[in-house]
Design a protein around this nucleic acid. Structure first.
Lengths: 179, 179
DNA sequence: ATAGTATATGCATACTGTTGCATATAGGTC
DNA sequence: GACCTATATGCAACAGTATGCATATACTAT
């Protein structure tokens, strides 16, 4: 249900095409909301049908036409209303933790390998986030509310990954004890 | 796809009924995997049909019969195989962060109220987790592998909530600056 | 030449998860 | 007497997400 509002929020920042939104969801919104391009195109169609978005076809030579979407007044109102309603916390569903619950059946070398891949991924993502922070949010106090809030969303991502990395260290210590 | 393996892992610990599994998922497995009782009953039926579980009806006077499920050799093998395969990270989908992305449209009092509810919920969950840790994992080095792994899953929950609480503090500081 | 990546859009199907409802009994609360 | 909680199970419908496939062009790398 939140995908539509994630799209409205992203388009409220600046009008965009489905393709551009897909990129944003993969990069700048990676720690906020996840969606495939198929999902995004489908939802944009619905939002347009419902009058929450306007669509302008931008012809291109030698490439498919781009469809530029923009939030309408009705769309913004819809988003505003949603923003005031408290949202449920996303339920936890982590396959890695499921594995730990079957602890005595675990293949420890396979687990270590998985942890190593995980650590590399998280470290890279942390670097990406910290680079974004330095580039856009180095002086948060001076920014308008809009960007201060987006900075807080980024902080969530950074703190979450740091906690994950600390957890990985704890795991490694525990596994080294047994061996 | 992981629900079936969460069930196999839980039943591998000890045989149980759908009702008991629902309780476990709500409490001890809350930070691992989330599922409703309807989902659990449905999946248990499938696993039984596929021969991964045995089922014994336990008649009760004046209450519906209980159906006790146990993992078969085939079920355990299936679980083992799954455990060695690397699992994808769960995608992030957090409505609260979506809200922050529409930062300039936010109603700050409503946001503060939502944060306060969140803080209370997290603090309570942290206390629960820490109580479990003290009761069952006060001397982790002495425990067999099975429980050391389950302790690590719990540590994940604890570190995650602590990071969430630190983030909330950052948010409160930021909101206090403006206003 | 062939493969891969990027731009740009989307349909159809399968799987997973949520919500509403249903049944049956016992005990406690307003 | 009416309502809530707990035990114990489940069906049916719907919403949301994932996966596989399709189309079309241009550029780069091997």
């Amino acid at each position: 249900m939140s995908l539509r509002y994630a799209l409205l929020a992203a388009l409220h920042e600046s009008p965009a095409t489905g393709y551009e939104l897909t990129q944003r969801f993969r990069h700048r919104l990676a720690h906020v909301w996840n969606a495939s391009h198929q999902q995004i195109y489908r939802e944009l169609g619905k939002l347009h049908e419902e009058g929450l978005l306007t669509m302008t076809e931008v012809p291109q030579t030698e490439k498919p036409d781009r469809k530029l979407y923009q939030v309408t007044a009705e769309g913004e109102q819809d988003l505003r209303t949603w923003l005031t309603r408290p949202q449920p916390r996303p339920p936890t569903r982590d396959p890695l933790l499921v594995k730990l619950f079957a602890g005595d059946l675990l293949d420890l070398p396979a687990l270590r390998a998985e942890m190593e891949r995980l650590r590399m991924g998280w470290e890279q993502q942390l670097q990406t986030f910290q680079a974004i922070e330095q580039e856009h949010f180095s002086a948060p106090e001076t920014l308008p509310q809009h960007y201060r809030m987006q900075h807080l969303a980024l902080r969530r991502g950074i703190l979450g990954i740091q906690a994950s990395l600390r957890w990985l260290e704890e795991m490694e210590e525990t596994l080294d004890q047994d061996n």
